[in-house]
Amino acid sequence: MDNVDLKLFNKIEALNPDINTCMACGLCTATCTAGNFTDMSFRKIILMLQRGKDKEAIELVKKCMMCGKCMMICSRGINTRNILLSITRIYNEEQNI
């Protein structure tokens, strides 16, 4: 964990403080529209980013359809859509591959 560069994640955190209230319950994964066809899972994205697995996380982020069901269902009221948009704005695909 100590070797993980969380600079980008901290940026996301600053924009979306609610990201830290995630308790990885998996409701978002269960309802995910894209998850019906792929291994997309919002819960996993957060966990991966926290652990520095940026490349894997980005692969999942690309599959999101922005439908917003995860936001409707989230038991912690996290604005998942905006977190996802922030990730696509802040993380750079090239840099991590």
Binding site: F37, T38, I58, V61, K62, K63, C64, M65, L85, I87, T88, R89, I90, Y91, N92, E93
Partner: peptide, 14 residues
């Protein structure tokens, strides 16, 4: 708004 990461819906082709 510029998004660095582009969506990839290739899975829909299947």
């Amino acid at each position: 708004t510029y998004y660095k990461i582009k969506s990839d819906f290739s899975y829909l082709e299947r």
